[in-house]
Write a protein that binds this DNA or RNA. Structure first.
Ligand code: ZN
Ligand code: ZN
Ligand code: ZN
Ligand code: ZN
Lengths: 130, 130
DNA sequence: AATATTATCGCAACAATGTTGCAATTAAAA
DNA sequence: TTTTAATTGCAACATTGTTGCGATAATATT
């Protein structure tokens, strides 16, 4: 029954997530923490936060991995079935909490998790594009 | 107007795709080609095949990248909007050509590409699990 | 068939990202 | 305060992917 501890590094990472409107990569988090802790420590903190359902992992079309805070706790089954939008211009990735795909899949598949990522131009970049 | 060439390496890679029922990673392709060509060459062949809409790239939840042959040519716009299934047990990734997600996204987003990956247990592993 | 063009390749070198083992540290329980 | 073990730092390694450039070879041209 592993207990979880509040370390300075973990607290700092959580604070960074709290201030960010978009998903963050390991590199971005490391940049913001400066030399507070080791590179590996951030990897391990992210791993724990994902396991504890505090943040979720997002894999983009180009293979980049980002993390975002979960805004949907207190559910029996914790599934991230909302869409993510990846802007090709500003490269930001945001959660679209209200966009959820519907689909029909053959009954002989058992689905445990889904990943639904849309890429294109976000509202900001769409405007500045005109 | 760059012309494309049929090299032995490219032919071998295409033949491997032809024989495979599932999506293939760079490492898997390299294993099957043996020492026919360099590692980098396979990367470049895959890059060209993707650009020519002969194969499409699939990014999995765990970050692994695979490629699968396109079975839907002769369309004006070549979009891979079908779902992909990633089996957590046998680790195989397959195209579900007939499974396409429907969704509603705010009008101020411009969607150019989508990635819809389901993970869980494939029919094979679901059966052998009982 | 011989030659010219250039797409493709091999190789070396590099970069980014992620993992593992282990001793040292430190948050939290006793 | 002492004890426990979760967490960290560091070094070392693995994987994946990219780039530059001279050499090779597929295709077009003569
Ligand atoms: Zn944008
Ligand atoms: Zn999200
Ligand atoms: Zn399976
Ligand atoms: Zn596919």
């Amino acid at each position: 029954m592993k207990t979880t501890r509040n370390t300075v590094a973990k607290t700092a990472v959580l604070e960074i997530f709290g201030k960010s409107k978009t998903a963050l990569s390991h590199a971005e988090i490391q940049k913001q923490t400066g030399d507070l802790c080791d590179r590996v420590t951030i990897y391990r903190i992210l791993e724990r936060l994902v396991n504890d359902d505090i943040v979720h992992k997002i894999v983009n079309l180009d293979g980049t991995v980002k993390y975002a805070k979960c805004h949907h706790h207190a559910q029996r089954v914790h599934i991230h079935n909302h869409a993510h939008f990846s802007c090709e211009k500003c490269l930001e990735i945001t959660c679209l909490e209200n966009v959820k795909p519907s689909y029909i899949i053959p009954h002989n598949y058992k689905v445990n998790d889904i990943n639904f990522t849309l890429s294109g131009l976000c509202p900001n970049c769409l405007n500045s594009n005109i």
